[in-house]
Structures are given as structure tokens and as C-alpha cells.
């Protein structure tokens, strides 16, 4: 399965194939500054907010995502597996990295 992911902050799109999590696809954008951390839901650097779309999650650190946050779609990208096309907003570390480089690129 291939799903398209839209970063609403910059209107960039990337794809997630098969069992790829949201961060794996984003890394392939090969944009400098995408913080690649533990890729295991423990370090919290890859926080995003899902705006729309269906997804499955694996357990992620409560130090970085509280239960109410998770209910609102605030998740760690490395623990989210899309089941449909997704649109998301970058928050925290990711926001700085994605939007800073966007400004440089444009």
C-alpha cells in the first residue's frame, strides 16, 4: 500500500510504502534538518499533529505525548503507520527543522 502524506505547514507531499512509519517516509524527503532520533517512540523529537486520515500507532513515550494529546492526533511520527492518505502539521523540533529549511529552499 502506498499512502500520500501532506505536510500542511509547507504543502510538501511524500509517500509511505508498506509498513513504513510517517517518519521513515519523511526522512526520504532527504531534507536537511529532519531530526532523526530513536525511531522507536522514546526520544520525542518527531512530534506531529495529524489533521486528517486513518492510522495505526505503536506505543509511544508518555513523557512526550500525553493521553489527551494522543486523542487530538498529536503523535510521534516514528510510531504512526498510515492506513490512508494523511495530512499533518509539524510541531516542536520538527516544526523548526521543516519550516526553517523551507524558508532556505524558497
Amino acid at each position: 500500500m502506498i499512502h500520500t502524506v501532506t505536510i500542511t505547514d509547507t504543502n510538501e507531499k511524500y509517500t509511505c510504502r508498506g509498513k513504513q512509519h510517517l517518519l521513515a517516509g519523511m526522512i526520504q524527503l532527504a531534507r536537511k534538518g529532519i531530526p532523526v532520533g530513536c525511531r522507536s517512540g522514546g526520544c520525542g523529537v518527531c512530534k506531529v499533529k495529524i489533521i486528517s486520515g486513518d492510522y495505526q500507532t505503536k506505543i509511544m513515550s508518555r513523557e512526550h505525548v500525553t493521553e489527551p494529546e494522543e486523542e487530538e492526533g498529536v503523535v510521534l511520527a516514528c510510531r504512526v503507520f498510515p492506513l490512508s492518505d494523511i495530512s499533518l502539521q509539524v510541531v516542536g523540533h520538527l516544526n523548526k527543522a521543516v519550516t526553517r529549511n523551507q524558508m532556505k529552499n524558497s
Binding site: G37, C38, R39, S40, G41, G42, C43, S61
Partner: peptide, 8 residues
């Protein structure tokens, strides 16, 4: 490398 919970 990282363990499956993100401990390095």
C-alpha cells in the same frame, strides 16, 4: 543504535 523503546 537504539533499543525498541528509544534508549540508545
Amino acid at each position: 543504535y537504539f533499543d525498541p523503546s528509544g534508549n540508545r
